[in-house]
């Protein structure tokens, strides 16, 4: 795609789909295991399929399915969903300057279809310097493929969960973990982000005993706090440096 960037609607749509294929592959086992875990934990097939269709947020759905299994109240599950999905504010804010000329009939569905995966793919397209007027078709292509795949895989998992006993023993739920590892590592490009990752992980371990998955919220907030602190104050034993000096190659 270097040199001649796609310039027609169709080419942008197909290019967006193509760039999303690796992430779709990572989502396949994750979607199937969500469906299976959801029905195994007592959600009805309709509610599990409804979550994939209307919430469309993999990690939040997966955590919700686990919370349903522990008998957590709906209000706690919804609150956890809110906290887990807060990262989308960042994605939306990052994309906003690129999509601000689009009409609402584009913005609403594109917003609904915003995921970690589609964000990572689409922002790279928007940051390319060419003046293609159809970059939102690239976004649409990525979103449609992710969404269709997520529905299909959820349904397969829902059916499997009703017929196969204990689907988690195959370890397919681990696909989410390795996908997230593959997404975290490239994000860690400076000390504050490393601090956020390490503190969030450590606090998540310490706080995992808290009821109703509250540990996740505490850990996420601690991680964000650590990132901000590391950014404002240089580390102990470290010489304070001007911001420019931190950008080592």
């Amino acid at each position: 795609m270097t040199g001649s960037a796609p310039a027609t609607r169709r080419a942008e749509l197909l290019a967006g789909m193509k760039a999303t294929i690796p992430l779709v592959i990572g989502a396949i086992p994750f979607g199937m295991i969500f469906g299976a875990v959801a029905v195994t934990n007592g959600l009805s097939p309709a509610a599990a399929a409804g979550m994939s269709a209307f919430v469309y947020a993999g990690s939040a759905q997966f955590i919700a399915a686990n919370l349903v299994g522990t008998g957590a109240p709906a209000a706690i599950i919804i609150l956890t969903t809110l906290v887990v999905n807060m990262r989308h504010i960042l994605y939306a804010a990052t994309l906003a300057p690129h999509v601000k000329r689009l009409p609402q009939r584009w913005l609403a569905p594109l917003g609904f279809w915003l995921t970690d995966e589609t964000f990572v793919v689409v922002i790279q397209r928007y940051e390319q310097q060419d003046a293609s007027p159809y970059k939102h078709y690239y976004y649409l292509g990525s979103a449609l493929l992710m969404y269709a795949n997520w529905q299909l895989c959820s349904w397969i998992g829902i059916i499997a969960g009703q017929t196969i006993p204990d689907p988690t023993r195959w370890g397919l739920d681990f696909a989410m973990v390795v996908t997230f590892i593959g997404m975290i590592v490239p994000m860690v490009r400076n000390r504050p982000t490393l601090a956020a990752v390490l503190v969030a992980g450590a606090v998540a371990l310490l706080a995992h005993g808290l009821p109703n998955q509250l540990g996740l919220m505490v850990a996420a907030l601690a991680g964000v706090g650590a990132g901000m602190l590391a950014q404002i104050f240089p580390g102990a034993g470290e010489t304070p440096q001007p911001a420019k000096a931190e950008r080592a190659p």
Partner: peptide
């Protein structure tokens, strides 16, 4: 637990994290 309310609530808070910022931050 009311599953309908659960899915609706999750859908609303998730959409609220995605769409409004995208629509407003330009302004």
């Amino acid at each position: 637990m009311n599953e309908f309310m659960l899915v609706l609530g999750m859908a609303v808070v998730t959409f609220a994290m995605r769409y409004p910022v995208m629509a407003l931050v330009g302004r």
